[in-house]
Each structure stands twice: as C-alpha cells, then as structure tokens.
Computed example of a mutant assay.
Amino acid sequence: MLSYQHIYHAGNLADVHKHSLLSWMLAYLTRKDKPLTYLETHAGRALYDLDAEEARKTGEAAAGIARTRGWFGPEHPYTQVLERVSAEDGPNAYPGSPLIASHLLRPSDKIHLAELHPAEHAALELAMSPTGAKCHLRDGFEMAFALCPPTPRRGLLLIDPSYEIKSDYDDIFRHIAKLHRAWNVGIIALWYPILKSGAHGPMLEALSAQHKDALRHEVRFAPARPGHGMVGSGMFVLNPPYGLAEEARRLGARYAKLL
C-alpha cells in the first residue's frame, strides 16, 4: 500500500467522476448554515502537478480532466474549484479531494485527513497548511473509527483506497458497516474501480444487500492504456443528499458519449 502514489493517475476519468460528485455533495451540504465535518481515509498529497513526469508518463490526465473540463458549467462547484486552483497554483495544478474540500467548506467546518505514505503525508501537510485541516499520519480506517461520530455530527466521509491490497475488497464491507453503526447520519462515500477481473463485484454485492437505500453510480470508459485493468469508476454513497442521483445521471450521460 505504501508504494501507491496518485500523481500517476491524478485528473484521470475516475478522478473526474469522483471529484465532480464530491464537489456537488459538499456544495449541497454548505447550503445550510450549520457546521459540518469532512473526513477522508486515503488523502494523498492534495495538490498535483499534471505537467510532472509521472502524470505525463501515463497520459491519464490528458484523457481525463483535459478532455472533460468543458462538461461542467461555470456555476458547478467542481469548475469553481478547478479555476481557483489554476489561478493560485498554475494551469497544470490539479486538486485532490482534500483541496477540493478545503475550497468548498467554511471556517466553521472541520477537516480530518489520513495518509499513511510518509512522503505523501508530508506533501499533504504542506498543501493543506493554510487551511486549518488536521492531517493524520495514520491508517485511514483507524482515524475514522476513532473520530466517528465526529463533532460536528453533520458531514461526509470519503473512503478512497488504492485497492492495491486484495483484502481491501473484503475489509471495506465490514469497515463501512461499523462506521455506519457509529455515525448513522453521516454521508459515507466509497469510491471503487470497475475492473475487467470483476474483483470489485463481491464487495458491491455485499454492500448493496446491506445498504439498500444507498446510491450506487458507475461510469464506464476505455482502459487508460493497453492491458490496463480499470474500465470504469464507481461511487457508493450511504445517506446520499437529495438531488445527488439526478446529478449522477447527468454525469453518466456525458461518460456514455465517450464510449
């Protein structure tokens, strides 16, 4: 797990799916004048340079955000964050989910981020230092178990593992069940890859059976390169905000035109 670095994949089609829906949810939550908590179990470094050698090597950003940025109108919160980050950090800067959260949340809101990779954690702390976010050098699920239910109690937890460890698919079902019991009013959002191998299938079947009212949204796209096993992106959201299903349908129609 400590070998994973998201810079190779930042801004890809899966990020666009995940980050646009996350942006919409956070903007929705801040419509109410009540503080909230944002937690993230696998935060990464928060800010990515899409002109870096690692990003250019895979070409995933070129096939992702560079191709799809026009999908989102100027009023969409994802567009607004992208424009702010470009203005502050340059045209090749891309925000990870922690930075997206910091741009959309308010001073009264709390942000807790976990990252276990030492170098990624150091970069995360640097990127997030002006925001007041708490960056934990800790296993993300350990952090979530320790903090849930958080204060403030309103809020959202993003679970976005690398899935490099095969046991993740077995463990996540149990972890989400435990977190939901502890924080039954929280929005719990899980990102997962859609794989040619079908390795994600049993996990999704178990989650769907246990959480029948959750929103499950998936998009498909061509592999990033020959032999690449990921052919789509999914989001599984417990306690989905009102209107998220409609937003997801609009986004799905855009992805369908790529195929």
Rank of each mutant, 00 (worst) to 15 (best):
Y4T: 03
H6Y: 01
I7K: 04
Y8I: 01
A10L: 12
G11P: 08
L13M: 11
D15Q: 04
H17I: 01
H19T: 00
H19S: 00
S20H: 01
L22Y: 14
S23P: 07
S23V: 14
L26F: 14
A27D: 08
L39N: 08
A43R: 12
L47F: 06
A52T: 07
A52Y: 12
E54L: 11
E54I: 10
R56F: 11
R56G: 02
K57Q: 15
K57P: 08
G59S: 02
A63Q: 12
G64W: 00
R67K: 04
T68Q: 13
G70C: 05
G70N: 10
W71K: 07
F72K: 06
G73P: 09
E75Y: 10
T79I: 12
T79Q: 12
T79M: 02
E83M: 13
R84N: 15
R84M: 03
S86M: 14
A87L: 10
D89P: 03
D89R: 10
G90S: 04
G90M: 09
A93C: 04
P95F: 06
G96E: 15
S97P: 04
S97V: 03
P98E: 11
A101Q: 14
H103G: 12
R106D: 09
S108L: 08
S108R: 10
K110N: 09
I111R: 03
P118F: 10
A119C: 07
E120N: 06
A122R: 11
A122C: 10
L124P: 00
L124D: 03
L124Y: 07
A127H: 02
A133L: 01
K134A: 14
C135F: 07
L137E: 09
R138S: 10
D139K: 04
D139V: 12
F141V: 05
F141P: 00
E142G: 05
M143K: 13
A146M: 14
C148P: 08
T151F: 05
T151D: 05
T151H: 05
G155I: 04
L156H: 02
L157E: 09
L158N: 06
L158S: 11
L158P: 00
D160S: 13
P161R: 10
S162H: 06
S162N: 14
S162K: 05
I165C: 12
D168S: 07
I172Y: 15
I172N: 03
F173N: 08
F173V: 03
A177I: 08
A177M: 15
A177V: 10
H180M: 13
R181Q: 09
W183K: 11
V185A: 09
L190T: 07
W191A: 01
Y192T: 02
Y192S: 00
Y192Q: 13
P193K: 00
G198K: 04
G198D: 05
G201T: 12
G201I: 14
G201A: 15
L204D: 02
A206R: 14
K212T: 14
D213N: 06
D213F: 15
D213W: 08
A214K: 06
L215Y: 06
R216M: 03
R216E: 13
V219I: 13
A222P: 15
A224T: 11
S233F: 06
G234Y: 00
M235R: 06
F236W: 08
V237N: 00
L238T: 01
P240H: 15
P241N: 03
Y242V: 11
L244W: 02
L244S: 01
G252W: 11
G252K: 07
A253K: 09
Y255Q: 02
Y255W: 14
L259M: 12
